[in-house]
Write a protein that binds this DNA or RNA. Structure first.
Lengths: 339, 339
DNA sequence: CTGTTAGCGCATTCAC
DNA sequence: GTGAATGCGCTAACAG
């Protein structure tokens, strides 16, 4: 249907091989005169190389796959932007898959990318890695066939990627809060079987313990805005019926959860930080518009995406980058008497 | 390198064709016994069909392309989520391109998708359509070769898509504000050469005029958070040096711009809505966490993405859907004396 | 129902 | 420097 290279070659009165060399680069350089003729023909006919045919012939697709949990979540969309930007004009195209928090779909996404013969797969926010042997086996298969895998967030031996030191960062965050004067903490810990979730709450709790403190409560629940909203609402209700809410600092293992918690707090007509302090984790761009400004641990999300993308491009050196977050205390954890 | 269908066929002791029929569906159904053997072989060898080879042989790629301006912008990421969801388990994969607000890159994106022989291209937030003949020519070429194009936002004859009735929606929004008691308006109009931008401000102004009102000021600038921030800051500075800020309602042609404006207002230590009222447009999900809650015109963004995706899947009937936004007045435009 | 064969569009050896 | 031929992995006629 579409214009083929053959058509261009005919139009220009040269061979297929020559046309190929002119249009799609090669070591051998055809004469300028011929090159011009070919290019003119391509232009005239409206030729666009068939990427699938090229991929088949070259056995490399210039395709990379990114799997996220939810592209509308600022955490993932910021990473996605970073990946996009890293691609620049490398000519590499990005295939996007959303798992919608479903391990099943995560596997399907990887399978689809394998079928597409993507040169690399960037896995962010994996849910099943580590628990699910199936995904791991899939990935091994992929790697054996020359595919590169970059994991964002999870520390995995044997693969490159951006490892986020959630535990140390959470500890650091706890330390800052303590030295800012906070003593009573509640932790919205997310899901215990999610590594990210677990590392963050563990790191935080660990630091508390080593400082002679103890969380008043550690509440598990879905690793989502809604989950945090429910958990927080529930917590407040319990507090109220137990005599009243006392001042605590609520650590949420993600900013998105912090937003859910904040909403619950607001609906209970409590003030932040006067009645309850809130801290998140990630520093998603969205925070910039929240009042009061929200304390968090800043992760260079866009950079992380960019690094992952660069690693995907550099078909060679698999590196492993370890990123630590930086505590950023803002209004949401400001103590009344503090400056 | 990877396992080929031939390998599977050999392993199972059947012909290539049979293996193909078993693994990748066909009208002809091989015997159950043979099917099982083939599937077992595929499983054992870790076979994944080569999508490029399939595409070449079938001359259909099961690929669709989505081009956005910035995937980290909630407007686009919400649409992207809708598109993703519409794909479900159709087996269609999504190729994503970000133009970064650059018409040049928009063209490159479409060209890349054409090379990938995507079955459809969804164009959202196009910048150059209508001004730039080059993109239009490209698209015609694509359509002639059987490609489907869905435009989101821009009203284009000859293509399917989701048309957003920006003008009527803006009029409606203005009407609501007027009947809520607002009389003095300032418009942050974005860029005059961006259709979306222009339609929204025109519709709004039109309604004011027909109500015997007139905007105090119409300020142009980049169609972005930053642009609105600068525009608003500048406006406030001028007001202050002219004797003081008087109460107005600021209409921003997008929520993202409204957020920028709000920031500028806050930095000037003015209160919303007491000193200045603010309205946006789109109802991006982000608004849910903003205080005060922000008035806007609600567009079903995720639905829009979903519809576009569905149209891309239904390789047949090109429809054109017209969507109108619904004014939603919230705290940011509440008048002191109002209820 | 199963196997053989001929392309799909292009890159790339290999001859010239 | 240029052209002819082979194969990338798979599907879809066509035979059997």
């Amino acid at each position: 249907m579409a214009v083929r290279l053959t058509d261009v070659a005919n139009e220009a009165g040269v061979s297929l091989a020559t046309a190929s060399r002119v249009l799609n680069g090669s070591a051998r350089k055809p004469a300028v005169e011929i090159s011009d003729k070919v290019r003119a023909a391509a232009e005239k006919l409206g030729y666009f190389p068939n990427a699938q045919a090229q991929a088949l012939a070259r056995s490399t697709t210039k395709l990379i796959g990114l799997v996220v949990r939810d592209i509308a979540d600022p955490y993932f969309s910021t990473i996605a932007r970073g990946v996009q930007r890293s691609l620049g004009d490398s000519g590499v195209q990005l295939l996007l898959a959303s798992t919608e928090y479903d391990p099943e779909r995560e596997i399907e996404a990887v399978q689809a990318f394998m079928s597409q013969r993507t040169d690399a797969i960037i896995l962010s926010g994996s849910r099943s890695l580590g628990e699910n042997g199936q995904l791991l086996k899939l990935i091994e298969n992929y790697q054996e066939n020359g595919g590169q895998v970059m994991i964002i967030g999870q520390p995995m031996t044997d693969m490159g990627g951006i490892q986020i030191d959630n535990e140390a960062t959470a500890e650091h965050l706890a330390a800052e809060l303590i030295s800012a004067g906070h003593r009573r903490f509640v932790v919205l810990a997310g899901e215990a079987n999610l590594l990210t979730s677990r590392d963050r709450s563990n790191g935080f709790l660990e630091k508390l313990k080593r400082s002679g403190l103890d969380a008043e409560e550690v509440i598990s629940g879905p690793f989502s805005r809604e989950g945090a909203y429910v958990a927080m609402s529930d917590y407040l209700k319990r507090q109220k019926s137990a005599g009243g809410v006392h001042r605590v600092c609520v650590f949420c293992v993600s900013d998105v959860m912090a937003l859910g918690a904040i909403r619950a707090i607001r609906e209970n007509r409590l003030r932040i930080p006067e009645d309850i302090a809130v801290v998140g984790f990630d520093d998603i761009p969205t925070l910039i518009d929240i009042t009061p400004t929200v304390s968090t641990a800043r992760l260079p999300l866009e950079e992380i995406g960019k690094w992952a993308g660069e690693m995907a491009l550099n078909h060679g050196e698999l590196r492993k980058i370890v990123v630590s977050g930086v505590p950023v205390l803002r209004e949401s954890t400001q103590l009344a008497d503090g400056q």
